[in-house]
Design a binder for these strands. Structure first.
Length: 170
DNA sequence: GTTGAGCGTT
């Protein structure tokens, strides 16, 4: 069954999904009654505890491209597109599949026109169900650039190719 | 025929 493996996957990343009990964190900040501590730099508790912002404060996205992970292997591009379409204008929606086997790798990318749409889709579809699997929406990292910039064609015009292997005297 | 870590074929 897919549920068991999904549960295992959820257990792995439970740190970023489950909201930790705030009572424990607040208890940590309770200063001990021992007044021996001079506390030369009293911090503003309001800035530490914060408002209602949970520990996983969602920072604004810096890219309209989103990385969708946890996809079902049956989920395809269109399903992804239809799922993320209501959140904004999709410029791209693709499920990455292995070119050899042709099957999905279980993750994909969606790109919106603006950051707001991406933010909306992220907060709307993160840790939600798609094809029976819990998907995760995260900002995508810039794709691998071109590997070989090819600075110049060396050893083409000089003719100085060290063909002879340098043999170590050792 | 699916068994699950992670960032793409152009």
């Amino acid at each position: 069954m897919a549920l068991s493996s999904q549960l295992r996957r959820l257990l792995r990343s439970s740190a970023s999904v489950s909201s930790p009990p705030s009572s424990i964190l607040r208890a940590t900040f309770c200063s001990s009654p021992s007044s021996s501590a001079p506390a030369p730099n009293p911090p503003h508790l309001s800035s530490i505890i914060g408002d209602d912002t949970e520990v996983s404060n969602v920072p604004p996205l810096t890219t309209p491209k989103l990385f969708i992970s946890g996809l079902s292997r049956l989920t395809t591009d269109e399903k992804l597109k239809n799922t993320f379409a209501p959140f904004g204008q999709l410029l791209e929606a693709k499920v990455i599949a292995d070119r050899i086997s042709g099957r999905s790798k279980g993750f994909g990318f969606v790109r919106y026109a603006t950051l707001e749409e991406a933010e909306n889709a992220r907060q709307g579809m993160n840790a939600k169900f798609l094809d029976g699997w819990v998907i995760f929406v995260d900002p995508a990292k810039p794709r691998q650039q071109k590997p070989a910039p090819q600075p110049d064609t060396d050893s083409s015009h000089t003719g100085f190719t060290s063909n002879k292997t340098v043999g170590w005297c050792g």
